[in-house]
Design a protein around this nucleic acid. Structure first.
Lengths: 241, 241
DNA sequence: GGGTGTGAAACTGTTCACAGCG
DNA sequence: CGCTGTGAACAGTTTCACACCC
């Protein structure tokens, strides 16, 4: 709605939690930032500020129209329509994602599967045939797929990412515990489970040494980790602190 | 090593990537912050600053002793020994985690499985018996388990978290797409796949409307998402921006 | 009065630039 | 001379406080 006020990235990660809270408040017509704050665990002022990056949605004295605001958030986030997603690497993680209903529910449909293992190519999984990764370019070039999820082993993640870039994919969710380098216009988000556990390990270790540690605030997102030479990078996923 | 200079949380998330890079540089005796920067995609100055929160590890003119620094990072992060982990909720995600070798490799051993589904209780999975969640207190009270991973459905996550707190668990990795509220001394990190995909959806949508979007820098995680009323919360995992 | 929108202040984290040491 | 450690400048976010509108 607003042609570029420069939106902080933590804001984006929060918008979905506002949206989720709104879905649970559909019985009410209006909701105040204070009530939304209670539901999401954010501060009321932050919610108001986050929303003003995109427009003025509220009515002073009443709050926000639940139905209207959810519709706005849907279109801001781009989830007012489905997204087709390619899944590269059909191992344990890949299969778990395929079985995960939450993705479909939110409008993310895995519609293409790729692997490089000859033993897997040709097999069916969740009703989709696993294709040879070397045919990706042909398969994806005139498909509506715009996002890819990488669930390949560590050492082939960069290689796969290069392929995806070549194919024209602009958004990548990477589960491999490796930073992947990409051109500037590719959006990469990382989910690194081991890194998260290691952070927990750190905080446990600290509070054993000194008093309480405390993950300060949050972000899963929000906290990105490191910036690759080229391309944009984010940390593992919306982790707080 | 340093009794509380207040370490930024993104720093913690980066330490593991430094450690990983050091493992790949074991042939060299010394490594400079510049070389580490190339390997990790971070800035050299940031690496130096990050490390000084914990001590002075470098030798001017030479760099950091690879072997020594990795040992230090291991002990700072608390990964110089194994951690036993409880896994709550043995669905698709839970099973994928059980099968994921990366956890064991990094010293995280899932040693307890819990579920509430009578059909699953008693079954074996990866050599472990699935126990009734209502027996968790007895089972964990004198075990060395200090961390738990929650992979239960959305609507029971808070309930499970409450149980874990009662049992004395101080570190939780939550895969449910729900913010869970916990007391102040509990460390919670969230991994929210749908949220990450939604962020990608947002950036794709923006760059379709205006020019390039760009995930600014990162935070993996980090970009944490929202702060719960009580307890500490983080976003989904080390996401950049 | 109640609640939004918002500039200004506070805070947190990153980048720079350079003094100082090996 | 090369590279670390670090204060100081900068940048990005969050929180506050309040003017303004319903």
């Amino acid at each position: 709605m607003n042609p570029q006020k420069k939106v902080p990235s933590p804001t984006i990660a929060r918008l979905l939690s506002y949206y989720r809270a709104l879905l649970e408040s559909r019985e009410t017509a209006y909701i105040s930032s204070e009530e939304l704050a209670k539901l999401t665990g954010c501060m009321a002022a932050q919610i108001r500020k986050d929303l003003t990056y995109f427009g003025e949605f509220g009515t002073p004295g009443k709050g926000y129209k639940v139905e209207e605001l959810s519709q706005c958030l849907r279109s801001i986030l781009g989830i007012d329509h489905d997204w087709e997603v390619a899944l590269i690497g059909i191992g344990n993680v890949g299969r778990a994602l395929l079985a995960y209903q939450g993705l479909k529910t939110q409008g993310f449909k895995v519609s293409q599967l790729f692997d490089s293992d000859p033993k897997k190519i040709g097999l069916s999984c969740a009703g989709l045939r696993i294709k040879d990764i070397s045919t990706m370019k042909e398969e994806l070039s005139n498909s509506p797929v715009k996002m890819a999820i990488i669930t390949v082993p560590d050492n082939s993640a960069q290689e796969v990412a290069n392929l995806l870039v070549e194919v024209g994919i602009k958004a990548i969710l990477n589960f491999a515990p490796t930073r992947i380098a990409t051109p500037d216009d590719i959006n990469v988000l990382n989910i690194d489970i081991t890194n998260e556990l290691t952070r927990l390990s750190y905080y446990l270790t600290q509070s054993a040494l000194f008093g309480v540690s405390r993950l300060s605030h949050q972000p899963l997102s929000a906290v990105p980790t490191a910036q690759a030479g080229i391309g944009t990078q984010t940390g593992t996923a919306q982790t707080g602190m």
